[in-house]
């Protein structure tokens, strides 16, 4: 799941400074789950902006809020049409995808990001999120005992560990496990130590041309799409 964190209030206030009627749009999927942009955070931002305005009445804005089910699908964004009348700017509390999807849908309205889209991760406990996947497009988790060195090793090296780890922790932070130590332990447990002894050649970054697109349409042979 995509994990995001709220932008500092100051940054948001600077972004909206030129606009008077501002619509805050939340997203009911990933950012709801990670507590950055669901309906609750939308109204919390709304409250914060109003309070800031009350205490510092230099610039006057009108705020509205709405939360859609998922901002990365155009059908859901259609529901915003009725809400955007006279709106000068939209703050999207979705990930970068949502921000762009809304921007695409409303070519004449500036769309501003209310959160920083941070990583793809999971909840390790209530309120704690850890990065797990770098969406490299070339998954090698089968070789590394289900632990991703690209994401979880600070250096992202494929033939670890480096000389840095101490007592199983990364040299970058004492609180962070060394991914390669974890991989080692796991492979040992699985009886797959041979994978540890292998050498992995450098990755071919050319395999990741951006922007990427995936077409999943069955019964359509290549080249017949426009037929």
């Amino acid at each position: 799941m995509i994990v995001a964190e709220p932008k500092p209030l100051d940054a948001i206030r600077q972004m909206i400074a030129p606009y008077s009627k501002v619509l805050i749009v939340g997203c009911g999927t990933c950012v709801t789950v990670c507590g950055a942009g669901g309906e609750r955070e939308v109204s919390f931002l709304h409250d914060k902006l109003r309070l800031a305005q009350a205490k510092n009445p230099d610039s006057i804005h009108n705020y509205f809020e709405y939360t859609v089910k998922r901002q990365c699908d155009p059908e859901f964004i259609d529901l915003l049409d009725a809400k955007t009348e006279g709106v000068d700017a939209i703050i999207s509390l979705a990930c970068g995808i949502g921000v762009q999807a809304i921007a695409e849908h409303f070519p004449d309205i500036p769309v501003l990001p209310g959160v920083n889209t941070t990583f793809n991760g999971m909840a390790s406990e209530y309120g704690v999120w850890d990065e797990r996947c770098a969406t490299c497009g070339d998954c090698c988790l089968d070789e590394t005992g289900g632990i991703c060195p690209i994401t979880r090793c600070t250096k992202g090296i494929l033939n670890g560990p480096c000389a840095g780890p101490k007592n199983g922790k990364c040299e970058v932070s004492k609180d962070m496990d060394c991914a390669w130590m974890l991989i080692y332990q796991r492979l040992e447990r699985l009886g797959q130590m041979d994978k540890m002894r292998r050498y992995y050649p450098a990755r071919n970054y050319q395999a990741v041309p951006r922007p990427r697109r995936i077409v999943v349409k069955s019964n359509v042979a290549a080249g017949e799409e426009n037929a």
Binding site: S43, F44, D47, K48, R50, L51, A54, K55
Partner: peptide, 11 residues
């Protein structure tokens, strides 16, 4: 909720 507290300050 946090919103209640902010609202008290706002008003």
């Amino acid at each position: 909720e946090p919103g209640h507290i902010l609202r008290a300050f706002e008003l």
